[in-house]
Design a protein around this nucleic acid. Structure first.
Lengths: 222, 222
DNA sequence: GTAGTCAGTGAACAGTCGTACTCCCAGGAG
DNA sequence: CTCCTGGGAGTACGACTGTTCACTGACTAC
């Protein structure tokens, strides 16, 4: 499991040796602002998130906010980058693994489950703001998910059973997989507070849905 | 196409003869508040929607709001009822129609396309607040979508090709169809401003996705 | 016809909001 | 060492928020 953050605590200590104490401190308060925002966004959406609210939760003066972000929409875009930017490598690595169809399904669902458990606030933010009220953030999320779809499509192109598929159909299947990934993550998030058996039910649901998609894929050219 | 509203203009005129002028006027301003909110919610989310903002757009004094709703979350729940409550009959009628698989797919996608074109603000509201920041509204939408899934599952139970399916698998397939319906509606909404060919591309995508699901369904018990 | 009900009004309340301004002082360059 | 850059603090501003209260006047039940 690779952390999605591009500037977490461990990395910041490294920065203090490379960038100097000045820049390191700046990155630290920037991270504090983003983490505070992430906590607040669990019970509201970005378009209602106040600048003062974030700085108060981060223990910083309101005016300090402007040193890092133009406005809360800017902060939202940064959060998208943090939540999704690091996942491309993970996705590519997961796709590169070979194995039986059932094994792949278990692996993919397990990976999502572990990621949601490790970074619930990031996942909640993405699913909430994917269709949220702030256009720039919506565009940022859509762009990242589009990149995921492209990567999945490129991988599908290398698979023997999709060799004769049209380009549009490959994109369609990639789109389905990315959407399913997001919805599964959201389902895990909703199931979490209701106990482990609900999480396992969500996992079972996701696995059977992937099996359904896989069956459709196998008979697509019939 | 059945209007989702339970109290639109035509119905209000009828009410003035049945309920009296007093109740009819109350329903009219209530409807004005909901429509004003729906307009404002195209560019923001419910958790940032202000009470005064709504009354200003509706041409009503701020305090009049309390005669109809406790708070904006209450208004949101009413909007969910208006957007989704009337669709159960439409869904049931659509399911009752018989026909070839391809014909059914075209019919379902066309129905969604026409509904999005007729009530874009309602659709935007539902997709936006489905994972939005207001818990009561999320719960209301989840409840309605759950009812849709139950109805689809009940219909699937009557289909010959699902006769030997387990109850869980039927629910899984129903869940997939409801999710696909919502995502298709969202795709139509996003495609709308970019021209008709983008809408047709979204429709083509939705049809092929339904074909994929149908193929998986046909070979589920292999 | 009259008395009462009640949707909608207008003023006032204490807060919060985003933003502009000045000031402070630790860190880094020379 | 000194100078200066720049992240952050503090203050102040006008605009806006949700909520309260007393009030008006058209409708309705008797």
């Amino acid at each position: 499991m690779v952390p999605p953050q591009s500037g977490n605590g461990c990395l910041l200590n490294v920065m203090s040796h490379i960038l100097g104490a000045r820049q390191a401190q700046k990155q630290r308060t920037r991270q504090a602002l983003m983490e505070a925002a992430l906590v607040l966004l669990e019970h509201q959406s970005l378009s209602s998130l106040g600048l003062r609210e974030v700085t108060r939760a981060a223990g910083v003066a309101p005016t300090a906010f402007y040193r890092h972000f133009r406005d809360t929409a800017d902060l939202g875009v940064a959060l998208v980058e943090e939540a999704l930017g690091g996942l491309h490598a993970v996705l590519r690595a997961t796709l590169a693994e070979t194995g039986d169809s059932a094994v792949r399904i278990d692996g993919a669902v397990g990976l999502i489950a572990r990621h949601v458990r490790a970074y619930p606030a990031h996942v909640r933010f993405v699913t909430r703001e994917r269709h949220g009220g702030v256009e720039r953030v919506r565009a940022a999320i859509g762009g990242q998910l589009g990149l995921f779809a492209e990567e999945v499509a490129a991988w599908l192109g290398t698979q023997p059973d999709c060799a004769r598929w049209s380009e549009d159909d490959v994109r369609m299947l990639a789109h389905v997989h990315v959407d399913h990934m997001v919805m599964t993550a959201s389902a895990f998030l909703e199931a979490g507070p209701y106990g482990e058996e609900r999480v396992e039910a969500a996992a079972s649901l996701a696995r059977r849905q992937l099996r359904l998609i896989g069956l459709g894929r196998r008979h697509w050219l019939d």
